[in-house]
Amino acid sequence: MEKFTLLNGLVVPLDRANVDTDAIIPKQFLKSIKRSGFGPNAFDEWRYLDHGEPGMDNSTRAINPDFVLNQPRYQGAQILLARENFGCGSSREHAPWALEDYGFRVIIAPSFADIFFNNCFKNGLLPIRLDATQVDGLFKAVEAHIGYQLVIDLEKQTISAPDGTVYPFEVDAFRKHCLLNGLDDIGLTLQHVDEIAAFEAKYHATQPWL
């Protein structure tokens, strides 16, 4: 997993609540047996005017000029600003894979769905919860200033805005450690292999039918 430490990135505002993982990556792209290459189909149904299918040459498809990600001022954005309950619905990890492959490293929203939130950390993506008023303020600022960037410092747990405002954010200590160091959970868990084996033996002794 790619490390995350400090990011100075362009922000794109996606102004709708309850963005679900079906919207982030539609089901037809879930047929892939790989975990890369989903970026061109992130938000496929909103981003293109035609119906997308796996294997299409996305560079020749007609894009929807009204969709915010397609606007020239937001090209190269690495920070996605979103509304409540972002990532609800399906547990598909293809959603964070698609966002990461598109180029995002940070998502800021007032709230996230649990499974999506969890999946982000496994893929070098940092989801940040800010309160709804702060998020509202950021939406206004992004829309008012072309080229609006934020500095995300994971070590210090701060978001710094161009006007000097600093927004502190919360992040789980274990997840922060993994992101800062690009650590894979499995390797960490396997450090406890004896504890797991001991638990398992005792557990199965009391419930032999399992």
Binding site: S91, E93, I115, N118, N119, I186, T189, V193, I196
Partner: peptide, 13 residues
Amino acid sequence: GIGTSEVEHVMAT
């Protein structure tokens, strides 16, 4: 429900 990284994690651990 879990994501695919967790599917792998549960398989392995």
